[in-house]
Write a protein that binds this DNA or RNA. Structure first.
Lengths: 232, 232
DNA sequence: ATAGTAAACGAACGTTCGTGCTAATTTGTC
DNA sequence: GACAAATTAGCACGAACGTTCGTTTACTAT
């Protein structure tokens, strides 16, 4: 069998065994393992969205899945790797439920609105048990250091970038006033979304999401050109 | 964290021992004790604002203050009491730095703006080590149950109420269009603030706060009447 | 059918968590 | 300066944490 080429990077002079990640999973994954891994991460995303990525513990996760701590742990090798994999899984869900559906809408204003709308649908439909994974993760890790925080920040940069591009797309399509600062508008929409989530989750404000829709639509109508298609 | 499955000592029916709050402070606090308590809570607020209220541990807190775990612990009796006391202390700081200074401004538009401005000053000046205590606490506890979550939610209701009253005050003073939905406007200002904080903390966006000021001012100017005093 | 590897387990490690006792020390009052 | 109360320290406990290890079970490729 074709042995997987191990990157034998012995080129560096071995100085001191700075351990940290010695026993990386060098396993060749098979179907069964991948299926289990998916199941683990699906549950992990839900737990983390509700309890936080630190509140996500190996023991409770294993228990909820009816498997042993060690068996579960072997899939990742460290808690940090588990967290990173969980973040990656959440990103995939986010892309599947928000980013990709949104680009099905026609360029310009409809696509911009679709992006905002799908985010609100995501949190309303409780795709993540705890509401929005990345909102929770953002505020949990914004005061820390390390690879997990960096990854979360990178993904949130991606997200703000996506909104910004949608705004610019609407400007290029002639649907939005081209003199507007696209970045600022993107931040405004994101802020409305976070604010609504906060009001719904903490204050149990049932109107939060519909109010957010109204606020976003009103904002859009306020800056739309005459060529813009009608908004909902 | 499943603290729920605790104290299930059903093997002995003799002593019910619903521990929870047995050793309430029957103590008459003295000056020294109160001073120590203040010092503990001052540090606790900082730690919690950066690491979260769960990340705040008795051990690390005691170490940072150069005292023993047990000595510190005796001031509160339980972790939950410590968290509640920390929340209360943070509330006091918030009132001292935001709410109270703001009501020094004249009624109406100036006071409304002062409220928003002082919130931004609070987070800019890093009065809380981790940025804003209540933003962090809100998103940490929004998926949990218990008295700590309830207290945080109540304080945030207070806060939204304060903004709402400021908006209504500006309407009554004839500075703001009286047909506007005060609640919606309050949520909008709060959302702008949270959003700015998110961008600054996680994305390290240095312009976040000044952008938030611009956004809030622009919003205010858009709905101000002609009688309104000039904004900054 | 069987060898070899991937996946999962169970038990234990060393820490750290919150918490409960008891003893010592400090503080405020007379 | 004595005395009681308030405060702090010392020590220990059980539970849960992330992690390691050796072993067993289940798959898969010959």
């Amino acid at each position: 069998m074709p042995r997987v080429l191990r990157s034998s990077s012995r080129k560096t002079l071995v100085k001191k065994r700075v351990n940290k990640r010695v026993n990386k999973p060098v396993l060749r994954r098979q179907a069964k393992g991948l299926r289990t891994r998916e199941a683990i991460l699906a549950r992990a995303v839900d737990i983390a969205s509700a309890q936080g990525l630190e509140g996500l513990t190996v023991g409770s996760l294993a228990e909820q899945l009816g498997m042993s701590k060690s068996g579960l742990f072997a899939h990742f090798g460290s808690k940090e790797e588990l967290q990173l994999a969980t973040v990656e899984m959440a990103r995939q869900v986010f892309i599947d439920k928000v980013t990709r559906p949104a680009i099905a809408a026609p360029k310009g204003m409809p696509r911009l609105w679709s992006l905002i709308d799908h985010w609100l649908i995501l949190v309303e439909k409780r795709v993540f048990e705890g509401g929005c994974f990345f909102t929770a993760a953002s505020f949990e890790f914004d005061g820390r250091l390390g690879v997990v925080r960096d990854r979360i920040a990178a993904i949130m940069h991606e997200w703000i970038g996506a909104i910004t591009r949608a705004v610019q797309g609407a400007q290029n399509a002639g649907h939005l006033d081209p003199k507007l600062d696209a970045t600022r508008l993107a931040f405004e929409f994101h802020a409305i979304a976070i604010g609504a989530h906060w009001a719904h989750q903490l204050l149990e404000d049932r109107q939060a999401y519909s109010r957010a829709r109204l606020m976003a639509l009103e904002k859009l109508r306020g800056v739309a050109t005459l060529q813009s298609p009608r908004l909902p």
